[in-house]
Simulated scan of single mutants.
Amino acid sequence: MTQRTLVLLKPDAVDRGLVGEILGRIERKAGWRIVALELRTLDLDTLRVHYAEHEGRPFYQPLLEFMSGSPSVALVVEGERVVEGMRALAGPTDPIAAAPGSIRGDFGTVVRENLVHASDSEKSAEREIEIFFPTLAGRP
């Protein structure tokens, strides 16, 4: 089933020059394609909406500061089982637990600055695409 998912290449991925490597991994997945892409410094209002479920947790404020501190790349990827597949490609949040071959397994250094965000479900993907790319919301 064709799906869409939101992917964020976080400031650490941009700052470390890993954008091309990560985009290449996404583009090499058979049947996946990037349908939207933008380099931007994320504003706090957008981040508060995006990370609303984490409000009140100890990592919430440092996460907002990290994510708004320098540019990120926001993109929408479309393809067969792309939500599940992109999560596998990203790897677990903890880079020590992430398998070699995953983005975090190959390039991750710390849990909090973990290079990439990928929607965790189709429902989350729809919500997140609406936040970052409202003109694509609701499109197949």
Rank of each mutant, 00 (worst) to 15 (best):
T5L: 00
V7Q: 04
L8A: 00
L9I: 14
K10D: 07
K10M: 10
P11Q: 09
A13W: 03
R16F: 11
G17T: 04
G20Q: 07
E21F: 01
L23R: 12
G24I: 05
G24H: 04
G24N: 04
E27V: 05
R28Q: 07
R28I: 00
K29Q: 10
G31D: 00
W32H: 01
W32F: 05
R33Y: 01
I34D: 08
I34T: 08
I34K: 02
V35C: 05
V35K: 01
V35E: 05
V35Q: 05
L37I: 12
L37D: 02
E38Q: 15
E38W: 10
R40K: 14
R40W: 09
T41R: 15
L42A: 13
D43T: 12
L44S: 10
D45L: 13
R48K: 12
V49N: 11
H50R: 13
H50A: 09
Y51M: 06
A52P: 04
A52T: 00
H54E: 14
F59G: 05
P62A: 11
P62Y: 08
L63D: 10
L64F: 11
L64N: 13
E65H: 03
M67P: 09
M67N: 10
S68Q: 09
S72C: 15
V73L: 12
A74K: 02
L75M: 15
L75H: 06
V76P: 02
V77S: 00
V77P: 00
E78C: 04
G79V: 02
E80T: 03
E80K: 02
V83P: 01
V83H: 08
E84M: 06
M86E: 00
A90G: 14
P92L: 14
T93D: 00
P95E: 11
P95V: 10
A97V: 14
A98N: 06
A99E: 15
A99M: 08
P100L: 14
G101M: 09
S102M: 07
I103N: 02
G105V: 15
G105K: 09
D106Y: 02
F107A: 11
G108R: 07
V110A: 11
V110I: 14
V111D: 14
V111Y: 10
V111P: 11
E113S: 14
V116Y: 13
S119L: 03
S119Q: 00
S119W: 06
D120H: 06
S121V: 09
E122Q: 08
E122I: 06
S124Y: 01
S124G: 11
E126D: 12
E128N: 04
E128C: 04
F133H: 02
P134K: 07
T135I: 01
T135C: 07
L136Q: 07
L136C: 04
A137W: 10
